[in-house]
Nucleic acid binder design. Structure first.
Length: 481
DNA sequence: CGATTTTGACCGGCGC
DNA sequence: GCGCCGGTCAAAATCG
């Protein structure tokens, strides 16, 4: 009996203890939930802070980008004004019509976007290179107002406008051309009339500038941030791969067109040729390449002589084939009747930086076209990266963002404006360890003369500055997305 | 159903 | 004048 009592007491105690345990567990769970809740709140707060920080960073980058743009615009202005001067000399015409510039931009390979099969028709959305494209009409619009539709269809007037614009830049002339086409489409729907109007624009002395972008790309087209509509496809002579013709579909009257074709020598290389300037606002991701292509086109049409002078300066560089980063080269596309500038992204740097800047000394024009070549590509040796890395700018290999180094020597003080570097950039410049910094110093001193010469060359060539600045800004812009 | 792509036809430039 | 070639158009087909 006592045992029973004891047992019952014990059971009660156990029950009571269990009940107590349940309460404790509940309290524990509650406190755990509170903790979780608090940590979640803390996490959210952290994220908010991070968000705010990133926003500030973005604003800063935007600010830098804008100031850079305005500088590019300022730098380019005299050239445009000069070339837009009312005295249309034969030299001017020949120079602008006969330019063929190759600009090679090496950059680190960025992550390859997932290619969505179901999205393959929307070729504007894919990239293997993380390239962004658009045209910078901050520059173009500030000079003249080419977008304004020509309300006076008088052929004389049209011709006059076209000629002046063409002297300013190819894309501008393209705009005028297309706006006129739009006018004709309204007033004279006949296709033959439309084509006749095209002919008016295609004066022998007025060539349209094109910017050709070469990229290693397995996909039908590169992601340039714009939306394109395919309007034709042709198999051109000498290349079994069909050439596709696209026009910008963001705005109905946008004159910008592009041609996409695989390189016959290397099928993995995609050649995208842009023509014209967007007459509408662009998505952010489309502005970066726009800056580059627009500046390149501007340089193409406005800076022939200055490029030559730059070349002259570049030839003063130390005569060491391994360390001579600048040389002139023939453009591969000699048959192209249009002034074309080529941005070559096909040679990715194996080092961490934005690399070479090559001007082959065997430059000569064999097409009657002035074939100025700016080569930013990236052979591992004799690269601009060393120069840029030793005084101008370095790029993070994973982000392609420039490290905050001084760019003032390039001629744009804002370029080097130190900006708060986010965490991911907080790593050794050029990816080198501290042990290699002394080696860097040695390299720096040995290339000091080179750097000075290059600085001089760059500073003496506004067009070159604008292209370089645009290229840099494109690197920056590409990281915004 | 609207947007986009495909594709054959057409046009102008250019060289012969 | 003719033919080739690059570029564009536009109707039909396709896609989402």
């Amino acid at each position: 009996m006592e045992k029973k009592m004891d047992n019952s007491i014990t059971e009660e105690a156990v029950v009571a203890r269990n009940q107590g345990n349940n309460h404790e567990e509940e309290a524990l769970r509650k406190s755990l939930k509170d903790d979780e809740f608090k940590s979640a709140i803390a996490e959210v707060n952290e994220l908010r802070l991070e968000n705010a920080r990133l926003r500030m960073l973005l604003e800063q980058v935007q600010k830098d980008y804008n100031s850079l743009q305005s500088r590019v615009s300022n730098i380019s202005q005299p050239e445009f004004n000069k070339s837009a001067s009312p005295t249309c000399t034969t030299e001017n015409i020949i120079a602008e019509e006969s330019e063929l510039v190759s600009l090679r931009l090496g950059r680190s390979p960025s992550r390859i976007d997932q290619y969505k099969k179901d999205d393959k028709k929307r070729h504007s959305c894919h990239s293997s290179d993380g390239l962004k494209l658009g045209l910078d009409y901050n520059i173009e619009l500030s000079k003249s107002d080419p977008i304004k539709p020509n309300t006076d269809p008088s052929p004389d007037k049209v011709l006059e406008t076209k000629t002046v614009d063409a002297r300013e830049s190819g894309p501008t002339s393209e705009i005028v051309k297309t706006m006129r086409r739009g006018d004709n489409e309204v007033s004279q729907p006949s296709p033959s009339v439309k084509r006749a109007s095209d002919d008016d624009v295609s004066q022998p002395n007025v060539k349209r500038a094109r910017v050709s972008v070469r990229t290693k790309c397995d996909y039908p087209t590169i992601n340039d941030g714009c939306q394109w509509r395919k309007y034709g496809q042709k198999i051109s002579r000498g290349n079994p791969c069909p050439r596709s013709y696209y026009r910008c579909s963001v705005a109905p009257l946008c004159p910008v067109r592009k041609q996409v074709q695989r390189c016959v020598e290397d099928m993995s290389v995609l050649i995208t040729t842009y023509e014209g300037t967007h007459n509408h606002s662009l998505p952010i991701e489309a502005t970066a390449m726009a800056s580059t292509t627009s500046a390149a086109a501007s340089m193409l049409l406005s800076g022939s002589s200055s490029s030559q002078s730059a070349n002259k300066d570049f030839r003063n560089l130390p005569n060491n084939s391994k360390s001579t980063p600048l040389y002139l080269s023939n453009s591969p596309s000699n048959s192209n009747p249009f002034p074309t500038i080529t941005l070559d992204f096909t040679t990715f740097p194996t080092t961490s930086s934005f690399t070479s800047f090559n001007f082959p000394s065997n430059f000569q024009s064999n097409t009657g076209f002035l074939s100025n070549s700016l080569n930013f590509s990236s052979p591992e040796s004799d690269t601009l990266s060393k120069i840029l890395g030793s005084g101008y700018v370095d790029y993070d290999p994973t982000t392609s963002l420039p490290y905050s180094k001084s760019l003032t020597n390039i001629g744009s003080s804002n370029l080097g404006k130190p900006s708060p570097a986010p965490k991911q950039f907080d790593q050794p410049v050029l990816g080198k360890s501290k042990n290699s910094i002394s080696n860097n110093l040695k390299e720096e001193s040995s290339q000091q003369a080179l750097t000075e010469t290059l600085t001089k060359a760059i500073a003496s060539d506004p067009s070159f500055q604008s292209v370089l600045a645009a290229a840099i800004s494109s690197m920056v812009g590409a990281t915004k997305t």
